[in-house]
Nucleic acid binder design. Structure first.
Lengths: 98, 98
DNA sequence: TAAAAGTGCTTTGTTTTCCAAAGTTAAATA
DNA sequence: TATTTAACTTTGGAAAACAAAGCACTTTTA
């Protein structure tokens, strides 16, 4: 029998990063505070996970304004989409036996 | 929007424990060494993850013999099945939006 | 206009988790 | 009797996660 976990992406072992990606797959853009509230995280914790995803080129940051307020939003990259899909495929393969 | 990761089970954040469970769902019993080879782990590492799963009452240990050789096998418990299924349901719900 | 509050971080320090390597015990085989 | 195998336990170090505090900047409020 083949190693069932070999194809899982280590970046997505984290529930938080998994959550961020799952949100970004269906939302073109999402703001820092929306994510923070949705995932119930402290700023520091969220920022560090976002940083990990950005380092991997899985998400992109956009700094802009809403009216006159600063606003940072995040979106998924093509690479991110691909990696996330591959991870889900690996997960599914692992449990499709059910 | 609701927190998409709140229903994930922390025990299954670990790819290894996830792998063990996915194997045990389809195999009534599996031996320590089979698991070790399948998941490509050191004994200590595997033993500690198995211990975590046993503490949670998600798996059961059977110590016996094959012929005159000692043999330890593991099986999933009812609680384990239930918890694993709940985790998969949470995962699916999180990504069904796709 | 001074104080308060919000945004989005970075830094700091602690706790938790992970993991390999070595040590252990008991039985089996050479 | 020496070595090997099975299944751990212990040890120790590295990595990851996380909360809390600090910070720079802007905007709103009193």
């Amino acid at each position: 029998m083949k190693n069932p976990i070999a194809d899982l992406n280590k970046i997505f072992d984290s529930r938080i990063r998994l959550g961020v990606m799952s949100v970004l797959v269906v939302n073109d853009e999402i703001g820092f505070n929306d994510l923070k509230q949705m995932l119930e995280l402290t700023d520091g914790n969220l920022a560090s996970h976002l940083n990990t995803l950005e380092q991997a080129d899985f998400i992109k940051v956009h700094k802009g304004f809403i009216g006159r307020k600063t606003s940072t939003t995040y979106s998924i990259t093509a690479l991110g989409k691909q990696a996330f899909k591959a991870h889900l495929d690996a997960l599914e393969k692992m449990i499709r036996k059910l």
